[in-house]
């Protein structure tokens, strides 16, 4: 079982919910990313999502787009993010998930990427522009390496698509709370809970909810019907804040997700 799988098994057993923060690797530099990972762990992160900067982040709103541009102008690449995880792994057992787009992986070479990333201690990936229909190659490489490929379900997904994602996704299923891009405004309505319970009943896999969650109130609301809550843009916005206020914010999220 993967590190992510074990983490969810333990959390579910304890009747808790996973807190999954996202930061952009290399924003504004890799040194800060190392500090942020330590802070996130201190504040109770269960799984850490590391964004890999890409020139054309289609699923991301302005906050993460700008963070990616800052990281790219500092010369951060997929290779360097994998090396970073290898360093972090020396001191940490937290599961790391990379969120990237497909082209950097394609250019790296899928088989080589899965091998290098899992050797470095990366536990899985989220690739928003890679639907399971097109992921045959990387899925077959990842099975051999115990490497999780996490697919997304949108509010507009049909039952047929939910079944396909449920079958293919490993580690957990990422439910996108809104039709939109990261950092958009969340609109809480009953459809989130009904969608998530449908996904759960069709898949039997843990479901984490992300996109648009920024306040502890929203995190707490969403946590009621999910196994995990992902917070991205709102943390990226605060990534250069003084550590004390950043910690305070993260702890308030942690407390809300229970």
């Amino acid at each position: 079982m993967s590190r992510i799988g074990k983490k969810f098994r333990d959390i579910v057993k304890r009747g808790e919910k996973a807190f999954i923060p996202y930061i952009m690797a290399g924003d504004p530099d890799l040194g800060r990313t190392v500090e942020l990972v330590r802070i996130l762990e201190d504040c109770g992160a269960d799984i850490i999502e590391l964004g890999v900067p890409f020139s054309d982040p289609l699923a991301d709103g302005p906050t993460i787009q700008k963070a990616a541009q800052r990281a790219l102008s500092g010369g951060v690449t997929l290779h360097k993010v994998i090396d970073l995880v290898a360093d972090l792994r020396k001191h940490s057992q937290v599961p790391f998930v990379l969120m990237t787009y497909y082209n950097p992986i394609f250019k790296y070479g899928e088989e080589r990427f899965v091998r290098d990333a899992s050797e470095a201690g990366v536990d899985g990936i989220i690739v928003p522009d890679l639907p399971p229909d097109e992921a045959g190659n990387i899925l077959s490489f990842s099975r051999k390496a115990d490497f999780d490929i996490i697919f997304l379900v949108a509010p507009t997904s049909t039952e047929e698509r939910i079944r396909l994602v449920s079958k293919s996704s490993r580690g957990f299923i990422y439910y996108v709370s809104i039709t939109g891009i990261t950092g958009s405004k969340l609109s809480m309505d009953s459809s989130i809970s009904s969608h998530v319970s449908k996904i759960r009943s069709l898949s039997g896999k843990p479901v984490a909810i992300g996109f648009g969650i920024s306040t502890p109130e929203e995190a707490s609301e969403v946590a009621r019907f999910a196994d995990g809550v992902i917070v991205g843009s709102a943390i990226v916005k605060r990534a250069s804040d003084p550590d004390a206020s950043l910690r305070e914010y993260l702890l308030s999220l942690r407390k809300a997700i229970s």
Binding site: L72, T77, N103, P104, I105, F106, K107, Y108
Partner: peptide, 20 residues
């Protein structure tokens, strides 16, 4: 060289790391 952008696999102008 070959790559995937905006939902399409085709020839792209990209660097060695797959950025456009």
């Amino acid at each position: 060289s070959l790559g995937v952008l905006q939902g399409t696999k085709s020839y792209l102008l990209q660097d060695d790391d797959g950025n456009i």
